[in-house]
Computed example of a mutant assay.
Amino acid sequence: MQFSPAFQSATLIQRYKRFLTDITLDDGTEVTIHCPNTGSMRNCLFPQSKIWFSVSDNPKRKYSRTWELAQTPDGHMIGINTGRANALAEEAINAKIITELCGYSSLRREVKYGSENSRIDILLEDQQRGRCYVEVKSCTLLEQGQGYFPDAVTTRGQKHLRELIEMVQQGHRAVLLFVVQHTGIDSVQAAAHIDPAYAALLNEAFLAGVEIIAYSASLSATSVNLVKSCPVKL
């Protein structure tokens, strides 16, 4: 995923009301920008740290700037815009970066499925291979050298795991894909200390036949791409 023009840099002041972030532009001006991350952003908020934002030319937007990247005190990059995770996954599948998901003839996004009225992030289909349901989750939480998901209790994430289990029971392939948008994360595991119910359900899904994989992203002001497989600890 290439960005032209490149993201612009600024300094973080604070994030508040979930969707708003105050920053200081490089010329010293303080402005409010949109935060495209509804999660807790645990261990992703570092006041006075460097951040990067994109600019929209849509005149209907109240806030034309969108927070895209953050930098940790250790210099690691974090992808703040979780809305890009599905597009990153799609690009990587089409480019055959995610080898586990190669060999399908069609790809569709946001397809309704399951008994709990969900929408699968990516549905892969092939006449010979059948269907593969891919649920995408963005992973940005790093604690004591370990990457975790989720960063807050997620009943929605629990529902998605139940739906994936159901697809396996119906004879389909189901995959949970963690898109790792933090350059300091070397492996991913369930955050049982944050959401024990999700961790238990993830283990249940694995035992039921749901495939659980992770891929790490390279992150810069000009491009964000999934580049390599990342171990998942189960």
Rank of each mutant, 00 (worst) to 15 (best):
H34I: 00
I194Q: 08
S9L: 09
R61G: 00
S106N: 11
M41Q: 14
L69P: 06
E100Y: 11
E135Y: 03
H160G: 06
D57N: 11
L45R: 00
S115F: 07
P150I: 04
D126N: 10
T29H: 08
A70K: 05
I213D: 03
K228P: 00
Q2M: 12
S49Y: 07
A10G: 10
S4K: 14
V136P: 02
L219G: 01
I80W: 01
F19A: 10
V168R: 15
C132D: 06
P36Q: 05
W52V: 08
K62P: 00
R42G: 00
F53R: 03
S223G: 08
A190K: 09
A190P: 14
Q189A: 05
S49T: 15
V179F: 12
C139T: 14
K137M: 11
V180Y: 01
E166W: 00
C102N: 14
D22F: 01
E204Y: 02
A197M: 07
F53N: 03
V224G: 00
C102R: 14
I165G: 02
S4D: 11
M167N: 09
C132N: 12
C230N: 09
H34T: 04
I33Y: 01
I51G: 02
V55M: 06
E143F: 00
S106I: 05
R173E: 13
T140C: 11
V210T: 06
D26K: 12
A152F: 10
G39N: 14
G147L: 00
S56V: 09
A95G: 02
H34C: 07
Q169C: 07
Q71G: 04
F178I: 02
A70L: 04
L176V: 01
G28W: 09
G83D: 01
P5I: 02
Q181M: 10
Q8M: 10
